[in-house]
Simulated assay, not measured.
Amino acid sequence: MMNESIASVPTIDPIASWFSALGSGTRSALFAAPHGEVPQKYVEEVLTKGHKLALSWFSEPIDSESFRLPEAVADYVDGVLAALQRWWIGLSNERRLQWANVENGPVPNGLLTSYPGSFEFVPGDDVVYADPQVIDFIAVAAA
């Protein structure tokens, strides 16, 4: 019989941890082409954080001269991208413009109900902020 307290402890997804730990520019570059070649200026960060947070996906020797994400990792990024694209397409043009103006500021109360359901808000003092992954996607989508 499984101990219920152990069963209720959530597990940490190493790919999700790795992706959310990346810098904004790196995430934006990966959103632009998850299965493509990673631009050279982002390879070091991808690998360094990959070795720290998602070792099982970044454990093999990698040629950093022409680097692509491991297939499962690229599929994860592509899945995040697809979920955000579905959300973005479902917004009215007015809502898209409002979201594009949020940038790194607090999310206005009027936008709280149009937030993508698979992402948590980042709490602040009496305000909430959008997950940085959402903000990075918006920057790419609104460009």
Rank of each mutant, 00 (worst) to 15 (best):
M1F: 12
M1D: 08
N3F: 06
E4S: 08
E4I: 13
A7L: 11
V9N: 06
P10N: 12
P10I: 10
P10G: 10
I12E: 14
D13M: 10
I15C: 04
W18M: 05
W18F: 12
F19N: 09
S20K: 12
S24I: 05
R27F: 07
R27C: 08
S28D: 07
S28A: 15
A29S: 15
A29E: 04
F31R: 03
F31Y: 15
A32Q: 13
A32G: 10
A33R: 07
P34W: 10
G36L: 03
V38D: 02
E44W: 10
V46C: 14
K49I: 05
K49M: 12
G50T: 09
H51E: 03
L53P: 02
A54T: 00
S56K: 09
S56I: 09
S59A: 15
E60T: 14
I62L: 11
E65G: 10
P70F: 10
P70C: 05
P70N: 03
A74D: 02
A74K: 08
D78A: 15
G79A: 15
L81G: 04
Q85F: 07
W87G: 13
W88A: 08
W88R: 04
I89Y: 04
G90L: 04
S92M: 09
N93Y: 01
E94G: 01
R95A: 14
L97W: 07
W99C: 11
W99A: 09
E103P: 03
N104A: 09
P106G: 13
V107G: 09
P108S: 01
L112E: 01
L112P: 00
T113L: 09
Y115N: 05
P116S: 02
G117K: 12
G117W: 06
G117F: 12
S118M: 11
F121D: 08
F121N: 05
D125C: 03
D126M: 10
V127M: 13
V128A: 08
V128M: 01
V128P: 00
D131G: 04
Q133V: 15
Q133P: 05
Q133H: 06
V134I: 15
V134Y: 11
I135W: 00
A139Y: 10
A139K: 15
A139C: 09
V140C: 08
V140T: 13
V140P: 00
A141S: 05
